[in-house]
Simulated scan of single mutants.
Amino acid sequence: MNYVVINGSPRKKNTWKMVKQAELNLKGNFEEIQLIKERIPLCNGCFKCIMEGEDECPHFDKIKPIMDKIRAADGIIIASPVYAMNVTALLKNFFDHTAYLYHRPEFFTKKALVVVSTAGAGQKDVAKYIDETLRHWGINKVYKITYACGGKDSIDEDNINKISKKFASDVESGKLHSPKFGDVLFYNVWRAMALSKDPIEADRKYWTETDLVNHDFAPEVKLNIVKKSFSKIMFFIFKKVMK
């Protein structure tokens, strides 16, 4: 198995210790990306990645190598300490550069492990934010490890081992999980937008060239009859609304 690790912390303290403990339970190769060393310029909100395509981002040369490593990985690990009740600026800036994935999700067969530490509070909310971001990327399943160290130089090895073993087993199984209803809903929002009267050209091109526009969800991921019906109804409604 191949894993890519994206460390949003500018330091290698408790959060990084948690990552390294988790790695002990994963069999394979690790590509570790320290965002502090990537020196990604601040996202300037130009909307080019969304409106014209991600290759038009002025920082594409910085972002593409990271995205290619994610595409090549079987599992993704994203780590961040809590800074001012949110992710670090390093990780938020990276996420901002992937805003186009909200319109054009692609990682439907990937699974992720989120690792968050805090000296005080906010760890569950921060992990939830990362989870939501990854689900908009299309990520199939997200596991979360959170820990409040109380300002001490410590980690919860037992919990890390428990969750990381579940993550490893899931990645190795190759099994794909049924998406949540919210994920199906957003899938159909962007699918319908790609067929609207005046679509974003980058969206139209992606959804038609991948043929996702003709599927109730990513074809690798199976939907039960309820979710398949839900998808068809949502797509029908959104197409009517967006005409």
Results as ranks from 00 to 15, higher is better:
Met1Cys: 10
Met1Ser: 14
Val5Met: 09
Ile6His: 01
Asn7Ser: 15
Pro10Tyr: 02
Pro10Trp: 00
Lys12Cys: 09
Lys13Trp: 14
Lys13Leu: 15
Asn14Asp: 07
Thr15Val: 02
Trp16Ile: 11
Trp16Tyr: 09
Met18Trp: 12
Met18Tyr: 05
Lys20Arg: 13
Gln21Ile: 00
Leu24Arg: 15
Asn25Gln: 13
Lys27Gly: 14
Asn29Asp: 14
Ile33Glu: 08
Leu35Val: 03
Arg39Val: 07
Ile40Asn: 05
Ile40Lys: 04
Leu42Cys: 12
Asn44Glu: 15
Asn44Ile: 14
Asn44Phe: 14
Lys48Ser: 15
Lys48Tyr: 15
Cys49Asn: 02
Met51Asn: 13
Glu54Ser: 13
Cys57Pro: 03
Pro58Ser: 10
Pro58Tyr: 07
His59Gly: 02
His59Pro: 00
Phe60Pro: 06
Asp61Trp: 10
Asp61Gly: 08
Ile63Met: 12
Pro65Ser: 12
Met67Gln: 15
Lys69Leu: 03
Lys69Val: 01
Arg71Pro: 00
Gly75Phe: 01
Gly75Asp: 06
Ile76Trp: 00
Ile76Gly: 09
Ile78Asn: 14
Pro81Arg: 03
Leu90Glu: 05
Leu90Asp: 05
Leu91Cys: 10
Phe95Arg: 00
Asp96Arg: 01
Asp96His: 08
Asp96Trp: 07
His97Ala: 06
Thr98Lys: 01
Phe107Trp: 13
Thr109Leu: 04
Val116Met: 09
Thr118Ser: 15
Thr118Gln: 12
Gly120Ile: 00
Gly120Ala: 10
Ala121Gly: 12
Ala121Met: 12
Ala121Arg: 11
Tyr129Glu: 14
Asp131Trp: 10
Thr133Trp: 11
Gly138Pro: 01
Lys141Arg: 08
Val142Phe: 11
Thr146Gln: 14
Tyr147Cys: 02
Tyr147Thr: 04
Ala148Asp: 12
Cys149Trp: 03
Gly150Pro: 03
Asp153Gln: 05
Ser154Tyr: 07
Ser154Ala: 13
Ile155Gln: 03
Glu157Leu: 03
Asp158Thr: 01
Ile160Trp: 08
Lys162Arg: 11
Lys162Thr: 00
Phe167Met: 10
Ser169Thr: 01
Gly174Asp: 11
Ser178Asp: 13
Val184Arg: 09
Asn188Lys: 07
Arg191Tyr: 00
Arg191Glu: 12
Met193Tyr: 13
Asp198Ser: 04
Asp198His: 05
Pro199Gly: 03
Lys205Asp: 14
Trp207Asn: 08
Glu209His: 03
Thr210Arg: 03
Thr210Asn: 10
Asp211Pro: 00
Asp211Cys: 00
Val213Asn: 12
Val213Ala: 07
Phe217Cys: 09
Ala218Lys: 10
Pro219Lys: 01
Pro219Val: 01
Lys228Thr: 02
Phe230Pro: 08
Ser231Gln: 05
Lys232Leu: 07
Ile233Asp: 04
Phe235Cys: 06
